[in-house]
Amino acid sequence: MVKSPSPERNNEGFLEDAWAWSRDTAEEIASEDGLELSENHWEIIMFLRDFYKEHEISPPSNRLFVKAVKDAMGEEKGNSIYLMQLFPGTPAKTACRIAGLPRPTNCL
């Protein structure tokens, strides 16, 4: 299988165009963070992409990211420890980057 060229990204590794994203892109970005994507990762990544499509915004802070996951999947996954394990650092930022969503404005 021939891989298409990697889509353009900014200096913090975020995609310039959320719709240029593919699963290959996600794996490439994740590997830069030393992450190998499991089914648990994919579940959150696809949730974030659906959320972005539905609301035209990504959750604007880490706390709201956790709230949105909790609203969709319950306490077991909608908690910061679980999401931190999957997406180290600032989970919302790491997860948005892998999911191909725009760089948050650091508003909150």
Binding site: H55, E56, I57, K67, A68
Partner: peptide
Amino acid sequence: QKSVEKNLAAAPVFG
């Protein structure tokens, strides 16, 4: 512009 209808629909999700 982003749809405020879609943006606002996130309000209940965020509490």
